[in-house]
Design a protein around this nucleic acid. Sequence first.
DNA 1: GTTTCGCATTTAGAAAATCTAAATGCGATC
DNA 2: GATCGCATTTAGATTTTCTAAATGCGAAAC
Lengths: 300, 300
Amino acid sequence: MRNLNSVSLSAIRVIEAIARTGSLVRAAEELGATPGALSQRLSKAEASLGQPLFVRLSTGLRPTESCARIVPRLTLALTELSASLTELKRSESTTLTVTVAPIFASRWLIWRIGRFNQKYPTISLRLLPTADVIDLDHSDVDVGIRFGRDSAAMDGAFKLIDQRVFPVCSPELSRSIQKPQDLFQFPIIRENDQLSGWEVWLAALGLGHPEMKAGPTYADGSLCLDAAMLGQGIFMAWQTLASDALERGQVVAPFPNRVLSGASYWFITNRWSVQKPAVRQFREWLGEEMACSLRYWETC
Amino acid sequence: MRNLNSVSLSAIRVIEAIARTGSLVRAAEELGATPGALSQRLSKAEASLGQPLFVRLSTGLRPTESCARIVPRLTLALTELSASLTELKRSESTTLTVTVAPIFASRWLIWRIGRFNQKYPTISLRLLPTADVIDLDHSDVDVGIRFGRDSAAMDGAFKLIDQRVFPVCSPELSRSIQKPQDLFQFPIIRENDQLSGWEVWLAALGLGHPEMKAGPTYADGSLCLDAAMLGQGIFMAWQTLASDALERGQVVAPFPNRVLSGASYWFITNRWSVQKPAVRQFREWLGEEMACSLRYWETC
DNA sequence: GTTTCGCATTTAGAAAATCTAAATGCGATC
DNA sequence: GATCGCATTTAGATTTTCTAAATGCGAAAC
């Protein structure tokens, strides 16, 4: 391996091309350079190898015996390198790695990926459900779907959907609920002891700060939604979380008001992946699916 | 193959080394460069491939999935290139191609090559008997043994031996020859209708321009010598031509005077081959063999 | 919790390599 | 004897690549 320090690899390519084509001019054409440039590279290689590699004929260049002996090996090795790069590009264009928050993945995305695979069978979509934000540019992840406040919008991010919040509960509970104030006869389910979303929702409905019953608290929204399904209380949910549970009737939203929370879902891209067609296709597909979910919520 | 235009081959080497060693610092050490240089080459490669090849960890660099997949192929290909270069160097050091005039080859050199092979069994000596002078620097020939006038001595040539001329004839004829004038009762054998050598020899012995009988003419000195052996006349020979025939008694030199012709044998070297040990060894061996022939001539 | 260490990366400027375009030279062919 | 095709040389421009030092960042050590 240390051998390769003695000759520039580009010179090896020149040698192989000249040997294969039998002429400087043809090799130059193949390599996209001028004959003069190749001639110089060749001379340098010969000098550093301490031996001539080609016999100069009036009709072109003929490899010397020892050069001819290794040319097939050079061709092989260079073909191998070339094929490797092709594979690199190919695999890159057909696999798409997406990092998403686990809750979004489990409550919304994974149920729809089947349709994506149907539409783009050549793209192999891989999910990387992680809670922490990755530096996409220095990873092999193409896309991130991140939730964040609109004010923190990052460079080159694409907004997928505004988050809207609304209370949900089990069908049983909802029977006792006619007006917003009725909600507060039930416990309020909390995510990490927080009551996120309630303030904006109440404000939008012109309600003050009613007294809210203590309720169970869970580490993430997904568990909170489960608790709501089981009738443990009222939970302030949002579209992508509750979408499928609503559709299946596992929970219901007693009021049609869906209030902008001021946060959104963002589609962010690895700097390298921006121009990958698969990225664009995934983004467009995501947009369509979200629009479809939205339409459903509006009709119910 | 056209693929390889997109990425510099040296970058491929960097990629392979980083992937194999797992660290920029170690790769830099192996490739004999600074980490900064490799970092730059890598960034450029990533840019032109349009994808990151390594995930940056605090402990070093980890290949991305698609990079890792091709690394074994890269290692293979680079190893192959390296091995090819090794073979190139190896074969170069053990085969020695020598271009010689056919007459010198057939009358002197080939009878001694056996001894050369014995002394240097690892060097495979190949003779290229050609009449025309080759431009060594642009051929795969390492050495030329050329005959020429001293005034035309070329650059970097090494004089092997001064040519000395002397008349020879068959043993039968020589019995009638006591003094130089006796030579001219026999036909004078010519090479290409020329009487080369006679003038200097006669001058050295203080003889004028005696009348010389017409004799057979042949295309080259080797055939002239054969004619002399067969008693067809007198031939003005020289050391390397007549050496073995004299030793075997096929011809005799009636007079001890060996006169400098003003020409010599030259040992010339392909510019690339000068530093090959085999070249030096062959030159030294040639010198010894010639000295040995000289000693024999002096004693007879 | 702070420091230190081992990395990779960035930067600016220097050095080296490589290239281009045109001239040159050399055989072979017409 | 002229012309064509090819490789080579040359000088100068251009691009690439490198070095050395500064920087930044995370993990381990203290």
